[in-house]
Every structure is written in structure tokens, then in C-alpha cells.
């Protein structure tokens, strides 16, 4: 409980609020959830807060790998990425600065404490909604502002910044103790789970994009290009764009008709092409 932990813990708590999905400060999800909320960015920010940018980024990089396919659809999510990122990376930076520890703590926090807090808040916020409904009924414009923006943002701040601050400020000793006493089986399980967890996010993405079974062939094509041919993400995107464009062309309505009329209209081109061939 040293005092030099006070400022970094406080800053990490504030970052956790700014990066939360319901934060309104940084152009909604655009700057919040999708930028400050990502563990890669969290690593940088927590690194700055703790005065060790490189260690922070390395922790962020490791945690981001686990949460790359984090997904939020219709309010449902597979892990609370912001609590996970700031709690896990912050605690790791307060203790050993070891990326593997950051990953373990992030998974523990994101899948338990984080999801419980998130789901509870999502249920309780009907309170603000009901008040905003009443304000709309009564033409109370200030009431809408109060119950949609001001009040909820204050409670969001408290629900994000305070737990993360407390966890980092007081959790340090607990983590030190845990790391020394936790059985090997548990740490091994968490590290295996860290590798497997992205499968859930990817499966949730599949559930959105794979609308019919025939699309599985494109999924396997992407898989094989990466796993067998070892393509990078950028290379895969270009090939996928080509395939998508071909599909776009192939689904043109009345395609056969167009091809026919093209043949009739461009007989000169055909002759030219033949000349060129021979």
C-alpha cells in the first residue's frame, strides 16, 4: 500500500471508465470501447501511468491476443474486455510486470468480476431508463439530459474507476500471495484457457457472418490460407477482397443475358482478340 501506487492506480481506474463500452467521453464506442477499451491500447496507457511504457505494451500485447475476438452484440458480450484489460494489466504492472501474469489476471477478472459487474449494471440501468421515459412524457428536456447522460455517466464512472482503483491499490499483496500459493494445475489451466478463449469470440463472429452452410467453404479457405500457407492478415484481406469481388460479379442479376448481348455487340473485339492470340 505504498503511496507511489496511488496515482498510477487512480489513472488506470479513470482509463477504465474512458474505455468502457458505455462511456460517452470519446465519441461513444468509436474512441472509447474500440480504442481505449482495447488491451493493446490499455497496455500503452497503463504503461504511461506506471512509468514503464515498454513493459506496459508487452503486457497489453499479450492480453490483446486473448481478447482479439471480443464481441458485443445486442448488449451481450463474451468477456468484459475493459475491466479485464485495465484490472489485469494494471495489477500486473503493480507487481511483476510479467505479460503472462497480466494474461492470467485479465482472464480471471474479465470472466468473473467483470462479467458480474457488467451484467448487474445492464440490469440495474432500467432505473435511469424509466426516469428518462417519464421525462419524455412530461416534455422535461433537462430530465432527458439528466437521466440519459449526466446521471448514468456518473454511475458509470463510479462503477469503473473505483473497483479498478481498489483492485490495483489493495490487490497487490493479494496477487503476490496468490502467485506464490496458487497450485500449478490452476495456472496451467488458465494459460491453456487463455489460448482457447479466442475460439468463443471467433465462434460468435461466425454466428453473425455465416448465414448459410455453403459459406463454410470460405471460412475454411481463410483458415487454410493462414494455417497451411502461412499468410499474414494483410495478405489474407487482399485475397478475400478478390474472392468477394468475384462473388459480387457472379451474382449480378441477368448475368447470362449481359454476356450474350456483349458477345453480339463486340464482335470486332472478338476478332481482335483472336488476331492477338494467333
Amino acid at each position: 500500500m505504498e503511496m507511489d501506487l496511488l496515482i498510477p492506480a487512480l489513472l488506470t481506474g479513470i482509463f477504465c471508465y474512458l474505455g468502457a463500452i458505455e462511456s460517452a467521453c470519446l465519441f461513444g464506442m468509436s474512441g472509447g470501447f474500440y480504442i481505449v477499451g482495447r488491451p493493446l491500447v490499455a497496455g500503452l496507457l497503463v504503461g504511461v501511468a506506471f512509468g514503464d511504457v515498454q513493459a506496459g505494451i508487452l503486457c497489453g500485447l499479450a492480453v490483446q491476443g486473448v481478447f482479439i475476438a471480443n464481441l458485443s452484440t445486442g448488449g451481450a458480450t463474451n468477456s468484459e474486455i475493459t475491466y479485464a484489460a485495465y484490472g489485469g494489466i494494471g495489477l500486473a504492472m503493480a507487481t511483476s510486470k510479467d505479460p503472462a501474469i497480466a494474461v492470467t489476471l485479465s482472464i480471471l477478472i474479465g470472466q468473473t468480476f467483470g462479467l458480474i459487474f457488467y451484467n448487474t449494471r445492464m440490469a440495474l440501468y432500467s432505473f435511469w431508463n424509466r426516469r428518462a421515459d417519464i421525462a419524455a412524457e412530461q416534455n422535461d428536456l433537462a430530465g432527458i439530459r439528466m437521466n440519459h447522460l449526466v446521471g448514468p455517466q456518473i454511475t458509470n464512472f463510479l462503477l469503473r474507476a473505483i473497483p479498478i482503483f481498489l483492485v490495483i491499490f489493495f490487490g497487490k499483496d493479494l496477487v503476490d500471495w496468490l502467485l506464490q500459493n496458487i497450485p500449478q494445475v490452476v495456472t496451467d489451466t488458465i494459460s491453456v484457457l487463455g489460448g482457447v478463449l479466442p475460439a468463443l469470440g471467433i465462434a460468435m463472429l461466425m454466428n453473425i457472418v455465416i448465414k448459410e452452410k455453403s459459406l463454410f467453404i470460405f471460412f475454411f479457405a481463410g483458415f487454410v490460407l493462414t494455417a497451411f500457407a502461412g499468410l499474414s492478415m494483410i495478405a489474407l484481406v487482399f485475397i478475400a477482397a478478390l474472392v468477394a469481388y468475384l462473388v459480387f460479379l457472379a451474382t449480378k442479376p441477368g448475368l447470362a443475358l449481359v454476356a450474350e448481348s456483349a458477345n453480339q455487340n463486340t464482335s470486332e473485339d472478338v476478332i481482335f482478340e483472336d488476331d492477338y492470340l494467333f
Binding site: A69, M206, T226, L231, A244
Partner: peptide, 25 residues
Amino acid sequence: KRITDAFNILGVMVVGGLAAGNVAL
């Protein structure tokens, strides 16, 4: 619908790549 279907196929292939590159077991 054609455009979104085509984008969707791009998405399906990228997700396939994510499955190969980001799950470790």
C-alpha cells in the same frame, strides 16, 4: 444485398484466418 453478401464473404474469410492465427492449443 449483393454488396453486403460480398462484404460478408470477405468477413467469413477473415474470420477463418482469425481462427487459424489467434487460437492456441
